[in-house]
Design a protein around this nucleic acid. Structure first.
Lengths: 340, 340
DNA sequence: CTGTTAGCGCGTTCAC
DNA sequence: GTGAACGCGCTAACAG
């Protein structure tokens, strides 16, 4: 069933080499031969064996992505899907495919990357959700393996990345809340070690500090990015006396959880409590009340990441190796209006 | 930098063949040699080149999935992400990776599959969102290429699949609405040609028929699975005189759109209008009002699909080739209570 | 212009 | 118990 290049050769009465050249646009093949070979290839529905071609060319025409989440269900992070879509689309545009794996952060992670890198499973990697002292980045750099990341790190290393300025995003959001009259503002942080969580928290700190507002430890809670954890964290914040009148969550999901916690206590989000999230996932727009959040163009970031990686793989140096995008505050109902 | 098997051979003072055997658990290698080779491999961080190995073994250790959506942004279908997670997890469990591509249904689709199949890019494929007279299934069968599908087709062909009984699901949902006292029930259908849409609509027809309720053409609208289309479709239904008191949407997203349309007209969903969706995506649980919907275990389906495919690839025949799962009605707020 | 030869990196017969 | 030789399907160098 499988038709190889030697089938074409036999059919055309030519050598395998000539067929290969004819197919690959070599100059030293008569136009007539080329046409004939092409026709036969078309008829026999020939498709070159990518593995064999890969062995020869030392390229797989694949980019890899390892999803670094702990829990199996990913749907809690609708975030990833758009990123995948962007990457896959851009890859397809260049006749590349996307190799997807999942591996929780931890000791097994290194092995996972080693298999991919040393085994040459893909030509390049996209690393997402960078962490403090990210070993993945260090490893890839050490191996000299092509990669780009979504997110910066704190290792003082130089590598290509795309990131969203979370500090600026949360800063804008917090300033907005302050502008509405809020003084006691809570913050629901991400798990420690995640760079994006750190940056976002920095934005909060900065905005509060500038406004001369103390950042009470009691108004800082930490979640694990899930809705449930946002609920729990908000419960803790509301236990304070006095409780905050507004809260900024590190992502939309925790913001939704915070809204749920508030509701359970009889608070009306958007009036008694202002809530702001981050990501602008579609749940944000369609929740009730709709969620004020900081928006980042995930799909386009996927496109961008993939494009940067592919360009690197082609040997073309990147004109811009490091891109920091400014996110936009999207004001909806959950943040309410001016408070007295 | 890249260490190959011949590096190990040189280091160990052995031939490449012996090293290969030592590494692959062959019997005819002295235990001592085996240990020594292993140690060296560990030290040098040896990982076999998967491409070379693939050429030899004719296996890629990859399963493929082509996402068949029209629009680039996938996040509207949170559905896919859990499926991907399930597949990727199960694949990883067996040292397989997932090759992800995207290709809109249409003429280019065949080429896309041909490249994968004839080019032997993966060992097997998972086909999702089956369609009426699905050419993908026909093609794969014709090629004798291993695959499993998520969804049945209407071609009378025999192949392994997992599906959710959408007919039963919508039937249950509709019966529930009828039980609440609803008589004028609208239905927001999926685009034609999608098998799951057809099955779900059948469930609606059946329930209505059994209850002796006419299925007015005017109470049937069609969307394209997006929230916006649900909004529009609901608008059409509400223009009828008299309008429906309840509506079943083919998926959660359109159900949310329907809720939005109702709200725009001053209707209180859960009181003035009952809305039921399908999928039980996380947005369903967290919308307001929360959405009554039909739940299917997407992540587990991903696991199941992948497991079936891998077993087939191992040459083991499947004990159960065709699985039909019964979904569960999850009652929340949007369907309201008994109406007078 | 075309064909012959030689690998790509690994696994797998066979002799030894 | 070990190694030489061959082949997987294709491309690249060099002859002819």
């Amino acid at each position: 069933m499988a038709v190889g290049i030697k089938d074409l050769a036999r059919e055309a009465g030519l050598s395998v080499a000539t067929v290969s050249k004819a197919l690959n646009e070599y100059a030293d093949v008569s136009e007539e031969t080329r046409q004939r070979v092409r026709e036969i290839a078309r008829l026999l529905n020939y498709q070159p064996n990518v593995t064999a071609r890969g062995l020869q060319s030392r390229r797989t025409n694949m980019v890899g992505l390892v999803i670094p989440t702990m829990e199996p269900h990913l749907s809690d992070d609708p975030y990833f899907l758009d990123l995948l879509a962007g990457i896959a689309d851009e890859a397809a545009e260049h006749e590349f495919a996307l190799l997807l794996t999942r591996c929780a952060p931890g000791p097994k992670e290194r092995t996972c990357y080693q298999k991919i890198v040393r085994g040459r499973r893909v030509d390049g990697l996209i690393v997402v959700r960078t962490r403090s002292q990210d070993q993945r980045v260090a490893y890839l750099l050490e191996e000299g393996f092509p990669f780009v990341t979504f997110g910066r790190t704190d290792q003082g290393l130089d590598f290509p990345f795309v990131d969203v300025d979370g500090t600026q995003g949360v800063y804008d959001a917090t300033r907005y809340l302050i502008g509405l009259g809020h003084r006691r503002i809570g913050f629901i942080a991400a798990p420690e070690g995640l760079m994006f969580g750190f940056h976002r928290q920095e934005g909060f700190r900065k905005a509060m500090e500038e406004a001369g507002l103390a950042m009470e430890p009691g108004l800082l809670a930490r979640g694990d990015l899930t809705l449930q954890s946002g609920d729990v964290a908000m419960g803790q914040l509301l236990d304070r006396d006095p409780p905050p009148t507004a809260v900024v969550a590190c992502n939309d999901l925790m913001a939704l959880g915070a809204m749920r916690a508030a509701r359970k206590r009889g608070l009306w989000v958007g009036r008694d409590l202002a809530v702001v999230g981050f990501d602008d996932t579609h749940v944000a727009a369609h929740s009730r009340p709709s969620l004020t959040t900081v928006s980042q163009p995930i799909y386009d970031i996927g496109i961008l990441l993939c494009r940067m990686l592919l360009q690197t793989l082609q040997g073309k140096p990147l004109e811009v190796r490091q891109i920091l995008l400014r996110p936009a505050l999207v004001i909806r109902e959950s943040s309410g209006g001016t408070i007295s």
